[in-house]
Structure formats: C-alpha cells, structure tokens
Design a protein around this nucleic acid. Structure first.
Lengths: 236, 236
DNA sequence: AAGTGGTCTAGACCACTTG
DNA sequence: AAGTGGTCTAGACCACTTT
C-alpha cells in the first residue's frame, strides 16, 4: 500500500499550504524520486486524487492543485438546475451574518462537543433574476478563526473557494438529505412564496479530507421552475 | 487506448449472455492472452468495470459479473432512507400493470420515435409497514418483448434484476430530477396522505450500457419520516 | 500446493504543450 | 527540442482462497 502513503503525503502538502491551490506539482519522475517509489506508484496515488477532483492533470502541461472556483462548484456541489435548459451560476446575496452557540443539530453535524460557537450565514440565491434558494450555513468558529462579515462579503470566489484560500480548508465531499416541506414564513418571504407552497429542504454536511465535517448547510429551494439533479453511477 | 477495446469486448460478452450475471470471468492472464494484450491492460479495463459495479473482484477467488440483487440495488439505486437509523429494503406491491402508447414525456425520456407502446407498472413501496413511495414505471414494449404481469409478479429478485435475468438488460446508471409538489389525489390515497401534504417527486431515467435509456420512473415519496439521500464525491 | 487477484517496479514509446 | 502526462509491456513478489 505504498501508493496510500504517497497519497497521504500529497494531501499533507495541500493542507500545509506547501502546495497551493492552482499551483503545479513537481513532475511525476521527481515525485517518484522524492518518495522513493516508482513512477507507476505515484501515478496511482495521483489517479485517485484526480478522481476526487483534488488534483487536476493536463497532458503536456503538468499536474495542478484543484481550486474550488465557480466551474468546480457548479459541477460538483451545485445541483439545482432549470427544468429545461442549461445550468446557470447563481447570484448570491448575503442576508444575515451572525455568531452564536451551536444548536444541538449543528453540533452533531459538525462533530462539536458541548456548546461551541458557530458562524451563521444566510444567503438568498437568485437564478434568472428571481430568488430561488434560501441557504442557511453554519461553520465552527474554532475552524474559521477571525471570520468577519466584511471579509466574507469581500471574497472574490465561491464560498468554498474562500474556505480554501483563506483557511486552507478544502471541501472534497458532501452528504445531503432532501425532503419536501411547506415553506416556513421567513423562507417564504425571501423567496416570494405563499406559505402553503411546497419547497425542497436540503440538509448538507460538507467534509474536508479524512471526512472531517466543516460546514452544515440547510437549503430551501423553490422547485416550481428548478430541479435538484442527481446522477447515480459509481455509488460508494 | 487498447484498454478501451478490451472493456468494450467484456461489455459485449455480458450483453450477449456469454458472461452471465454471477458467473466468473476467465483469469486475468487468460483474458490477456485472448485479447493479445498485457495483464496490466486487462486490469485497467476491469478496474473501470469494477468501479461501475458491472464486475466484481474478489482476491483469491476471481472476477464475477455483477448481479442486480437487493444489496446492489439498495446501495446504488435506492436513495430513500429513514430520517434516523439504518436503511431498509422496501416491501414492493404491484398496484397496476398495463400497456399503452407512450406519452410525449415518456417517449422523450426513453428515446422513442412517434407513438410506440410502453408497459406501465405502478408499485407502492412499504417501509416499516407503511406505504411511503408510489412508483410509476414506463419501459418500451419493444425492449421487453412478451412481458406479462404474471411473469413480472413472479420474479424472485429486484425489478432491475429481472430486466437483467429475463432480457439481458443491465441497468448501470441513472439520472434523477427531484422537486417538491403537493400530492396528487391518486398518490395521496395510496400513501394515506392529505392532498395538501408536500411530497417529493423524483423523475428517473435509468440507462444500460452506452447510456441507452431503458426505464423512465416517477416516484412520489412521503418524506415525513424518510429522506432522499445523496453523496457528492466524484461528480462526472 | 495451486490458483486467483493486488501491488510495485523499470522501462519503452506516444500525445500534447511550450519555448 | 525539451518537458509534461498517457498508454502499454513484462515480470517479480505478496495476500488471499480453495483444494
């Protein structure tokens, strides 16, 4: 299982900031020399990280650390698409930003003990000019020290891109649970809905490496014109 | 791209019935001889088919053609799980079986031209003794010739297992679109729901090899005690 | 003991990108 | 032309299962 150790060290390089998002890795021959393994073994480790979108290979150019930019966010983590026609990147507007102690649900989802504090961020996402999604995000304050509304708002990339660029936290996977509910008054108002309107409620736990939970997000979605799309191919 | 050709031939063996579900493949050395490639190339082709759950490897025993049995169905194609606690295989009861010409939606989903006929199968799925899911299935009559309600009901495996065992059609992937709706009268009655109750509506197109559509299924789910669960790791 | 898949190696050659 | 990743080969050795 040499390739596992190589993979582990590559992940460590990313987590430590030694390999920054967007930067090129050494070529495969050099990596093989560094780790004292054959090129084939390096390739196997890199193969897996490429499959997980952590690394990105380009023939003739090199291997790069994946950035959580709009493109990657759209195809890996944004599953709301119009009933017909192509997907579109949402226009995100901050609605609330606060810090308080974690609810029991949040603590459980984030793996916190007792009552540690969390940042709570609420966004309204617009698609085709209309409010469609009400996001409520909770992240552990201890994991994102010194986060401020100003810094958060001033980000020039996606939310996950900000976690990555400002805190070295790379979101690599997420679990979601989806159900149908009637819109709560607050969400109904934000989405211009009648409270008797059915909406999707999506609970997401997003993880960084080693399945360490980093974010708990609840999304309320108006699915009159949009769907939650999912593809089943290589379940795990 | 030799390994692509090897993969293609292995798929052909499965589709032609030469390699039956559950049966063992020749060992890797023999496959390499047969295809005139190295063992490494065979391994790469098999690697991909294993990742797609089409083949199943067991160290020391051999490589086998995957069967669409309950276990595989549950972890690859059944995404409804109780809010808390472990998943459970549903108790499936036939509600309707008929044959008529395809609606425009069905024809589009199944890639049919004009008005070809389809079998329509409706099931009610019970979990923990209660009706939770109302499934409406449409499959092209031309693809499943001679299907009868008696044969369908007498199956001893999953629905996808029946497609595979009786027609040599292996479902390998599926796309789903999920939204929130109010229960229609028929579904509400079958699921013991008030018509004002919100339910999940899931539209699924299931594909066999080469992304050829084989089934169009609409599922209505009562999500008061169950969720639609999804894991995002290796998007495609 | 014999047979299977699992890991690792060392190297050749090809395809693509860049200067 | 030089440097990168992509494919393929041939073989050694290990881990597991069955007889």
């Amino acid at each position: 299982m040499l390739y596992r150790q190589v993979k582990r060290q590559l992940i460590n390089d990313i987590q430590s900031g030694l390999a920054a998002p967007g930067a090129a890795l050494p070529n495969e021959k050099d990596l093989a020399l560094r780790f004292n393994v054959s090129v084939g073994t390096v390739r196997r480790a890199v193969d897996e990280l490429v499959a997980e979108h952590v690394l990105l290979r380009q023939q003739g150019r090199g291997t790069f650390v994946g950035k959580l930019d709009r493109e990657r966010f759209m195809f890996q983590f944004f599953k709301i698409a119009p009933r017909t026609g192509p997907s579109e990147f949402p226009d995100v507007r901050l609605h609330k930003f606060s810090k308080s102690s974690a609810s029991r649900t949040e603590a459980q989802a984030l793996g916190l003990h007792g009552t540690q504090s969390v940042f709570r961020i609420e966004n309204v996402l617009y698609l085709k000019g209309r409010p469609v999604i009400h996001d409520q995000i909770a992240i552990a304050a201890a994991m994102f020290p010194g986060l401020t509304q100003a810094a958060f708002t001033a980000r020039t990339t996606t939310i996950y891109g900000h976690y990555q660029a400002a805190y070295g936290i790379t979101i690599v996977e997420a679990d979601e649970r989806v159900r149908a509910e009637l819109a709560k008054p607050e969400s109904a108002q934000l989405l211009n809905l009648d409270p008797a309107n059915p909406v999707l409620c999506i609970e997401r736990v997003a993880y960084t490496f080693d399945r360490k939970p980093a974010e708990f997000r609840t999304s309320i979605v108006d699915t009159r014109d949009f769907d939650y799309v999912s593809r089943m191919r290589e379940a795990a």
